[in-house]
């Protein structure tokens, strides 16, 4: 009896094993894919990720489930993807912070630890003042700041954030002394500017959409090469009179663990491209003011390498460069 059961178990196990390998070789994906989001549910990155994979079933044949693995300033979630099994069933959203971890001495992680899939969106910073502020243009603000060093206070999303670095680089270029007030995220920073607690708030452009449309803030500039479709009267940084050739972008992209078999990686790349091109996703990004930009794996790598080079001097200027070789 015992023998029989043992034999049966072996047969069952072998057949499961065989069918498993066969199934996998023939068809990928054969089960749901996990998309790790390194930031909390409800936040900007989470919202984008969830919308991106809303219709995944149509494009992959299986669902892509979002899992929020938060903590460590995104490093826990992003790190977990690099160490996940490279079977193609775990994919992660990577964000701006990945360019900082090594240089700020926070975590030994960079874009080099991933098989990159694609870029999802990128956007520049924007500076807003309260609707009743005496400053009408960026020139007003900079001139005032030059005449009164240390009087202008600028709220941003926290030390090392894209908002922080963009502001620091502007200050460096124009040699003005602006008091940086780091908040814990963009939401409190933009509320503080509406409430009059700081002179100016630096956020990414899409983060002030509702306040801009509600005429609670004036947006002084948008750091990009062309105007934004939802902010027709907001000048680019060059139009505002302070051209900057080296724009630091906030970005979101997709990456898989290193070592995913090439054929599976191709399925992922094609599938996510279809999710990205899905009209529902594009419409939502358009309405939210998110500039979706597709870069394939190769160009994404070049882009991220460029970003790291721009971060280094910016981080150094605010005393956050602690690069470990």
């Amino acid at each position: 009896m015992v023998k029989k059961i043992g034999l049966l178990a072996i047969v069952v196990m072998v057949s499961i094993g065989l069918s498993g390998t066969y199934g996998a070789a023939q068809q990928f994906p054969s089960k749901d894919i996990t998309l790790v989001v390194p930031w909390a549910a409800g936040g900007g990155t989470d919202t984008i990720a969830r919308t991106l994979v809303k219709n995944a079933k149509k494009h992959f044949g299986v669902n892509v489930n979002v899992v929020n693995r938060t903590g460590g300033l995104g490093a826990v979630g992003m790190g977990s993807v690099t160490t996940a099994a490279p079977d193609g069933y775990t994919v992660g959203v990577i964000t701006f912070h990945l360019s900082n971890y090594r240089m700020m001495g926070l975590a030994p992680l960079s874009y080099r630890d991933y098989s990159l899939i694609q870029l999802i969106n990128r956007e520049g910073a924007a500076a807003s003042v309260a609707a009743n502020s005496k400053f009408q243009t960026l020139k007003d603000l900079i001139e005032f700041a030059k005449a009164n060093p240390g009087v202008v206070t600028a709220g941003h999303a926290g030390a090392g954030s894209v908002q922080h670095l963009s502001l620091a680089s502007l200050g460096l270029r124009e040699k003005v002394k602006i008091v940086h007030v780091p908040f814990d995220g963009s939401a409190p920073a933009r509320t503080a500017v509406v409430g009059g607690h700081v002179t100016v708030a630096v956020t990414t452009i899409s983060e002030v959409l509702q306040l801009y449309r509600g005429k609670m803030v004036k947006v002084l500039y948008h750091e990009d090469t062309k105007r934004h479709w939802l902010y027709p009267d907001v000048p680019t940084i060059a139009e505002a009179g302070f051209p900057n050739a080296k724009i630091i972008y906030d970005w979101r992209a997709l990456g898989a663990p290193k070592g995913v078999p090439a054929d599976r990686l191709k399925v992922l790349i094609d599938g996510f491209k279809k999710c990205f091109d899905d009209p529902e996703f594009q419409k939502m990004a358009y309405d939210l003011g998110l500039a979706t930009v597709y870069l394939d794996s190769k160009s994404l790598e070049t882009f991220l390498a460029e970003m790291e080079e721009l971060h280094r001097p910016a981080l150094e200027s605010v005393g956050l460069l602690k690069e470990t070789k």
Binding site: L209, Q210, R213, G214, D287
Partner: peptide, 9 residues
């Protein structure tokens, strides 16, 4: 996600 962005509008 349902395309009703909270805010003054």
């Amino acid at each position: 996600i349902h395309n009703f962005q909270p805010g003054p509008m």
